[in-house]
Amino acid sequence: MTVPLIELCVEGIDGFLAAQGAGADRIELCASLVEGGLTPSLATIRAAVKAARIPVHVIIRPRGGDFLYSQTEFETMRDDILALRSEGVTGVVIGCLTPDGRIDEERMKALVEAARPMSVTCHRAFDMTADAGEALEALIRCGVDRVLTSGQRDTALEGLEILKKATEQAGDRIVIMGCGALDADNIKAVRDGAGLKELHFAALKTVASGMRFRNPHVGMGGTEKDREYELTVTDRDAVRATIAAAKNA
């Protein structure tokens, strides 16, 4: 068995340090995982690169919601990528769709060109396409190095057949990186069931805020008031356990 590469999805510099310390092989650095991951600040990226002993990939996503971007949003994505080429970042994570659920090949090709020589991953925008097989061929044409996918389902276990089919279709042309609620209990089954060489998970837990004063009358950003006093952090123990399970023959 080929020992799989493990990528951890983290939020912020503290998440990065926790995942790196717990044995991750590579990091996808994000902000706002509650929205599925947004582009982190430049200062956060620089801090991660400075502390990094493993490759750092940065998500390029200007907002939450769908992957159908305005022209101005697309231009900010391209400019973010161009800015990162001189920051020591190893790769970027991107995804653009057309209104009918296809890969936006024109924009993806432009972003891949802007990113080189960095590695390029297509994120789970792939899981929102109308036809997984067609989308995979489009990403190959665009020169993308890997695609992150749960097999177009909420979890990798639910999407296992599509993950397996995508891996077979990809061959050596593009890497299929599996994700979707992976943990120590299921990651080996997903690895073996789909023949995956790269796996991705977050291993998050919620902890109480250290704030002693709490205003019960305000919830910021439309969230539940209790959410103001909760933090979502990377669980080092869960990272270690899941990596061990993934690399167990």
Rank of each mutant, 00 (worst) to 15 (best):
residue 225 K to H: 07
residue 59 I to A: 06
residue 32 S to C: 10
residue 42 L to T: 13
residue 183 D to A: 01
residue 190 V to S: 00
residue 65 G to S: 14
residue 48 A to W: 04
residue 107 R to A: 06
residue 215 N to V: 07
residue 169 Q to E: 11
residue 3 V to E: 13
residue 235 D to M: 01
residue 16 F to K: 10
residue 60 I to T: 13
residue 232 T to M: 01
residue 29 L to D: 04
residue 115 A to F: 05
residue 114 A to W: 08
residue 244 A to W: 01
residue 193 G to L: 04
residue 192 D to E: 14
residue 157 L to M: 14
residue 185 D to A: 07
residue 189 A to V: 02
residue 153 R to L: 02
residue 102 R to H: 13
residue 1 M to G: 15
residue 111 L to D: 06
residue 135 A to E: 06
residue 35 E to H: 15
residue 185 D to C: 00
residue 122 C to L: 12
residue 147 V to E: 14
residue 53 R to Q: 15
residue 111 L to C: 11
residue 47 A to R: 11
residue 8 L to K: 05
residue 72 T to P: 00
residue 120 V to P: 03
residue 35 E to F: 13
residue 238 A to E: 12
residue 6 I to V: 15
residue 8 L to Q: 12
residue 102 R to P: 00
residue 24 A to W: 01
residue 89 V to H: 05
residue 109 K to E: 15
residue 128 M to T: 12
residue 11 E to H: 10
residue 25 D to L: 09
residue 17 L to V: 09
residue 127 D to P: 00
residue 30 C to V: 04
residue 207 V to L: 03
residue 101 G to K: 01
residue 202 A to W: 00
residue 167 T to M: 01
residue 192 D to L: 09
residue 70 S to F: 02
residue 81 I to A: 01
residue 50 K to I: 02
residue 37 G to R: 03
residue 178 G to K: 02
residue 126 F to N: 12
residue 224 E to R: 09
residue 229 Y to I: 03
residue 106 E to H: 12
residue 25 D to P: 08
residue 37 G to V: 08
residue 23 G to T: 13
residue 135 A to W: 01
residue 143 G to P: 07
residue 152 Q to V: 09
residue 244 A to T: 11
residue 114 A to M: 12
residue 211 M to Y: 07
residue 204 L to A: 11
residue 131 D to M: 10
